[in-house]
């Protein structure tokens, strides 16, 4: 928010207070205890939104989580989006813009950019793929056997020239199913 801290109602009296940078104080107006949360300034933010225009005005459908805050706090922002829309569309419904273009430094149109997790209005989680990834990681963690994890990294990351190349390794039938599982949530382009 452009300020050094915000007061919140949390953490005081727990062990969290001792392992975090925040400071509890007595509120000068109400005399009650309040916890001051210091601002953080990431160097880079990488976010995926449903739509953005070429300038970086971003439209997010579904839960925002902390995306607008990350975008504005980070020094440099890379926005990937399912679809780039014209600036005229943004100006037609300005309320739908969640991130203003000031915050954004690079915009990339990348359909399926959130895969294998979900993207509201576009596709659901690929649970099978996530399970494969988690199992490979768990096998390494529990037995020290690194082969499944290495195999995953090689096939889906290192041997892929681009994200489109990675997506081409996912069966088309599966992708159609993920689109259906989203339930076609309404979005405005």
């Amino acid at each position: 928010m452009g300020i050094p801290f915000i007061p919140v109602r949390d953490h005081v009296g727990s062990s969290m207070q001792y392992v975090n940078r925040g400071v509890p104080i007595k509120c000068p107006f109400t005399s009650e205890t309040v916890y001051l949360l210091p601002a953080c300034h990431p160097d880079v933010g990488i976010l995926h939104a449903q739509m953005a225009d070429a300038y970086g005005n971003c439209r997010i459908f579904g839960q925002l989580c902390t995306c607008p805050e990350i975008a504005l706090a980070a020094n440099y922002d890379i926005m990937t989006c399912e679809r780039i829309i014209p600036n005229e569309s943004v100006r037609k419904y300005p309320n739908l813009t969640e991130i203003p273009w000031f915050a954004v430094d690079a915009v990339v149109e990348q359909p399926w950019g959130a895969y294998p997790v979900s993207c509201w209005g576009f596709y659901w989680y690929d649970v099978e793929h996530l399970r494969m990834w988690v199992n490979a990681g768990n096998e390494f963690r529990k037995t020290g056997k690194i082969d499944p994890l290495e195999e995953y990294f090689n096939k889906y990351i290192f041997e892929c020239e681009s994200f489109d190349n990675f997506m081409s390794k996912i069966p088309y039938k599966r992708l159609r199913k993920l689109v259906e599982l989203d339930g076609h949530q309404p979005i405005i382009t």
């Binding site: 579904g62 839960q63 989580c65 805050e69 979900s118 659901w124 989680y125 649970v127 339930g183 949530q185």
Partner: peptide, 24 residues
Amino acid sequence: ELGLPISVGDTRAGIKSCIIKGLC
């Protein structure tokens, strides 16, 4: 109505809400 969400932030946890904004 679409079933059990996988996380608190996914589509199933948000459909037909009265308002969706963010964590704040």
